[in-house]
Simulated scan of single mutants.
Amino acid sequence: MIDFGSDRPVHRQLADIIRADIAAGRLEPGQALPSETRLMQQYELGRVAVRQALGVLRSEGLIVTVKREGSYVRPQLPVERVIIEGAAEVTARMPSPDERKELDIAEGVPVFVLTQPRRTTRILPADRTILVYEK
Rank of each mutant, 00 (worst) to 15 (best):
R118S: 12
V50G: 00
V56A: 01
V10S: 10
L114K: 00
E102D: 12
R38S: 09
P29S: 06
I105E: 10
E80R: 10
V132G: 01
T121H: 07
R81T: 14
I83V: 14
R51F: 09
F4A: 13
S71C: 02
A23S: 08
V109A: 01
L27C: 07
A15V: 07
R47Y: 06
R19S: 07
P125V: 13
D127E: 08
P78W: 12
D3L: 07
L45I: 07
V10H: 12
E99Q: 03
T65R: 02
V90D: 06
L27F: 01
K67C: 07
A15N: 07
A88E: 04
P110S: 08
A32R: 10
L62V: 15
H11G: 06
Y72R: 05
D127I: 04
A53C: 07
I84S: 03
R8M: 10
A15S: 09
I63E: 00
G30A: 05
V82I: 15
L62I: 09
A53V: 07
S6D: 12
A15E: 06
P117G: 00
R122W: 13
V90H: 06
V113M: 03
M94S: 04
G46V: 11
R74V: 05
E28P: 01
L33Y: 13
T120H: 14
E134D: 14
E80S: 04
E85W: 04
R26C: 01
G46Q: 01
A53P: 04
G61I: 12
A88T: 11
R38G: 05
Q52F: 10
D104A: 01
S96Q: 11
I2E: 09
P29E: 04
Q116R: 02
D7V: 14
K101Q: 09
P110H: 02
L103F: 08
R51N: 04
V73C: 01
R100I: 05
V48G: 03
L45G: 06
V10L: 06
I63A: 08
E36R: 04
F4I: 15
R58T: 14
P110D: 03
P117L: 08
V79R: 00
G25Y: 08
L62A: 03
P29C: 08
K101D: 06
G86F: 00
V79I: 15
I63T: 13
M40H: 01
Y72H: 02
L103R: 06
E36K: 05
I123F: 05
D7W: 13
V132S: 02
L57R: 02
D16A: 09
D16H: 04
L103E: 09
M1P: 03
E134H: 10
V90M: 02
V10P: 07
M1N: 06
V64Q: 03
M40V: 02
R12L: 12
G30L: 12
V48C: 01
E60I: 15
L103M: 03
P9L: 11
Y43H: 03
V79F: 00
I83R: 01
E60D: 10
R122Q: 13
A24P: 09
R81F: 02
A20K: 06
V66I: 09
P117W: 14
V50R: 03
R93M: 10
T115Y: 11
G25A: 07
E44F: 11
Q42E: 13
